[in-house]
Amino acid sequence: MSDPVSALNGKTYSGSATVTENGLCGMIVLRGTFTDTVFQQAVRDIVGCDVPDIRKLVRSEIGSAAWMSPDELLLLVDYSQTEAKLSALRLALAGTHFMAENVSDARACFTVTGAAGREVLAKIAPVDLSPVVFKSGDFRRTRFAQIAAAFWLDEADTFHIICFRSVAEYMFNLLKTSAHPNAGVGVY
């Protein structure tokens, strides 16, 4: 089999913030009933954490779970383990009303690091990124200029962004433009 390669193969840019395409990331989209104890246990077994609260992302050593909608989670796991985890998940949820799919190769992941990170995102998304409003562990689906995106902030003040793989180039160029060293605004 050929080696899997991420959309931009780790492309990076350093401006007012550092923009990096993350490489391969395991992603499982999971729909089901959050209040169902079978569902909750399945999530715990696969990613090691509870079902996240509304618009939150929770993490453990073995994975993360992000709140996508009232009946949809995005589970983040190690890329090489995605298919195994998906099979385990389907087995655990068999007989309940659910949907689980491997979307790893249909998405692209980016990180934005550096003090200007908030500003880089705030310029291109209709989201209040003030430090008192958007905090570590917060997760948000929105648009970045003309494309759909989801992002969260981790404990190290790094923004993680996910978009469709087909628009990865657009996302990279957009973040790059927003992080241009001469394009600072200085609001945050």
Binding site: I54, R55, S69, P70, P126, R140, R141, T142, R143
Partner: peptide, 11 residues
Amino acid sequence: PYCGVKAEESE
């Protein structure tokens, strides 16, 4: 009413 976001029109 589902995710609680105060969404502007472009979203």
